[in-house]
């Protein structure tokens, strides 16, 4: 055993501690949900623009919980779309092909736009379907 092993090491991950910012975030979410219900105006929050620790993310995840819908979208990497236990509030996590998060959003709407089929893609699909039907 070398002398260095005798040095006591105590590791505390300060970055794991909650900061209290989640409470502010939830108040904002409540305001956005209220606005969507009364005006129909959808909104979203970019989680990565906020100073959140891992502890905050855990707290946020536990508070929002899981709702009825969970979907995945494969488009230049996997995107996870989950409705929270508050209908109309969605957590949308976009990943790149290497699996890294490139955008992490809370969306307040009836369904996140990434789930809908864009008309441009549908038009391309129609061409392919007609090709397939050609005798």
């Amino acid at each position: 055993m070398s002398a260095i092993d005798n040095i006591g090491i105590k590791v505390i991950e300060a970055a794991d501690l909650p900061t209290g910012n989640v409470k502010a975030l939830l108040h904002e979410l409540s305001g956005l949900l209220d606005a969507w219900l009364s005006t129909g105006e959808a909104a979203s929050i970019d989680l990565r623009s906020l100073p959140l620790t891992r502890g905050d993310y855990d707290e946020l995840g536990a508070t929002l919980g899981a709702g009825a819908v969970s979907a995945s979208v494969e488009a230049i990497g996997l995107s996870e779309v989950r409705e929270t236990r508050y209908p109309g509030v969605w957590r949308v996590t976009h990943r790149n092909e290497a699996g890294e998060i490139v955008a992490d959003l809370l969306e307040v709407c009836d369904a996140p736009v990434i789930l809908r089929s864009p008309v441009e893609d549908a038009a391309d699909g129609l061409i392919r379907l007609k090709e397939a039907l050609r005798p």
Partner: peptide
Amino acid sequence: GVSRRAFLKFCTALTSLMALPPS
């Protein structure tokens, strides 16, 4: 061969990158 949906996702990531609101 990038689909419109993939492009929209790319732009969502880019919007986050530019520190613009996701809307």
